[in-house]
Design a protein around this nucleic acid. Structure first.
Lengths: 334, 334
DNA sequence: CTGTTAGCGCATTCAA
DNA sequence: TTGAATGCGCTAACAG
């Protein structure tokens, strides 16, 4: 910037004004400055700039997700990135893979870089440590899972209602022995989905067979193995609800390998990219990652802009997408 | 940091030393400093730090992709993020959506934030503008598509060989009327794939029917429409090669809707998440996004570390994954 | 409308 | 081993 000042003959401050598009610079002088900038290939240094001004804002936010490559996560990230771009804000993205330690570490890395805010899909079950991090002025918004021991905005899907709707759908088709495969109940989201399942079963005057409720299968392999076991029971399920997309993945493989995809009814929580091209198509409870991302970004930017109103907890609707697998009658149909 | 200094009684410089884990601080003093840091909830400011030191390094890199939510891109991003984490480097990710202007804009945003380097899947066909950007010290590595009018490292899939292998596979099955659907030939990658197709056809002493070669369908909808037209020809193709995953997507839909998935042979370029669960499974030429991402990150970090050796162009192998769709005999088989 | 001075938070001299 | 001064690139506050 000093070089630009020297070459253009304008003072340092005037160059700064031109760079920042500030009011009140004679067009002629401004033009000289711009020429010098182009000639020297000068590039504004946002880091140095934000050190001194704009209340230390860096125009950057962090997005920490379970796994950036998960289709649900990446669709959400896309929406956040889109919202951020409108404001000239860049986004840093990281994956936590369910590791609480990595969550803390990456949050710290982001805070040390003074991002204006963080959108967090948490991997830990205790966010009290964020009280310290917030002192730097960093704002936090939670997605997919709620904050624990910490007060912050959140955007969550309606897990309970979604799981209940899926369950009821299977009941309506005529199923009685419905299996549930999901994540550990230590994860709030997973617990809510299980609650939704249980509630819908009760509603239908059905008692879930404990054998058919499996709650510690968070990845495709374990889900696959668990499903095999259920199918080997003397009295196997006629329908299955998979409470998460990786679980859905594993169960799809098992059903395909056993040639049961056309027989056992199946509803998955979360949509999958090629779900409509499967035979039969996969019936799912779909969240809207784009809307969730957009909402989270809006909440975050409002906080960054100084919104100090009470914490907001947005519940994002889910919807049932009927594609065939959830409408199968099961093995005992005539 | 001033507050920490005051509370701990150590000088500013000593606090700095402790924060950076530098040598030669009495354990006792260091402990006092750490206590003060914890007590005050002090967080190191990387922005200010990099302004003064480490040759202005920010320990951040940018990753600009066609679309962060594309499964190929997000898998690659994951690998880059992983490599970066090992070095305590954070990654900024953005989507370009094929817009050259956005590419220039986002590159500038990253340079203004003084990222140490950028991994770029380009959307533009002229990168001479990067000569200016490189003056700030920012390093560039290209992935998926090569740089034009600019000298930089690159990691590309073996597009020509991949498309040729797919074509030959279809020829080996017995196909003669093979359709090709791909992106515009203005995109270097797309041109190479088309060249591979043409070369393999020649090799087999076949002359591609110009009607069956469609080169301006970059998204699912246009690919779908184009495929419909091909199927409506008096002499439709018995096999199809789709040169990109979004094209594959569109063609899959058309074939499914026409109940031709079990009849027309189909090989896709790029793998898809549920490709093995389709009926029949989708035969593909698969790139290895993880390896590509890892390689690109390694190249970039070497440059950031001062490697000034001649530009390297890495070609990443592709492989044929046989799953069923590519081995169908076509409609005229007895 | 323009320039001067001071200082954001930190690390690099160099001296003690 | 520790500390004081100096300045990284930039902008807020204040002159002129």
């Amino acid at each position: 910037m000093l070089d630009v000042s020297a070459l253009s003959g304008a003072s340092l401050k005037t160059v700064s004004r031109v760079v920042n598009g500030a009011q009140g610079v004679t067009p002629g002088l401004a033009e000289k400055v711009r020429t010098a900038i182009a000639q020297l290939g000068y590039r504004h240094n946002q880091g140095a700039s934000s050190l001194r001004s704009r209340g230390q804002r860096t125009s950057s936010i962090g997005v920490l997700l379970h796994d950036v490559a998960n289709p649900f996560s990446s669709a959400m990230y896309r929406a956040i990135e889109f919202a951020a771009r409108d404001r000239g804000v860049v986004t840093l993205a990281g994956s936590l893979d369910g590791d609480p330690e990595r969550e803390r570490h990456l949050v710290m890395e982001l805070v040390e870089r003074r991002v204006d805010g963080v959108i967090l899909m948490p991997s830990s079950g205790d966010h009290s440590y964020l009280l310290d991090e917030r002192r730097t002025g960093t704002q936090f918004v939670f997605v997919d899972r709620p904050p624990a021991f910490f007060d912050a905005d959140s955007v969550l899907a309606d897990n309970r209602v979604g799981a209940a709707r899926a369950t009821q759908h299977l009941v309506d088709v005529g199923h009685r022995r419905i299996a549930y495969l999901g994540d550990s109940v230590d994860i709030v989201t997973a617990r809510e989905r299980l609650d939704g399942f249980t509630a819908a079963m009760s509603e239908a005057k059905l008692v879930p067979d404990p054998q058919l409720v499996v709650t510690d299968v968070g990845d495709p392999d374990r889900a696959s193995v668990a499903m095999e076991r259920l199918l080997d029971l003397a009295d196997p399920p006629s329908a299955v609800l998979t409470a998460q997309n990786l679980v859905t993945f594993g169960v799809l493989h098992t059903l395909r390998d056993r040639r049961l995809r056309h027989i056992i009814a199946h509803v998955g929580f979360d949509d999958l990219p090629l779900a409509d091209l499967l035979e039969p198509g996969l019936t799912v409870i779909a969240q809207d990652p784009t809307r969730i991302g957009r909402t989270a970004a809006d909440l975050l930017f409002a906080r960054i802009d100084g919104d100090a109103s009470p914490t907001r907890h947005v519940v994002s609707d889910v919807r049932l997408i009927v594609r065939g697998s959830g409408e199968l009658p099961g093995p005992f149909a005539s």
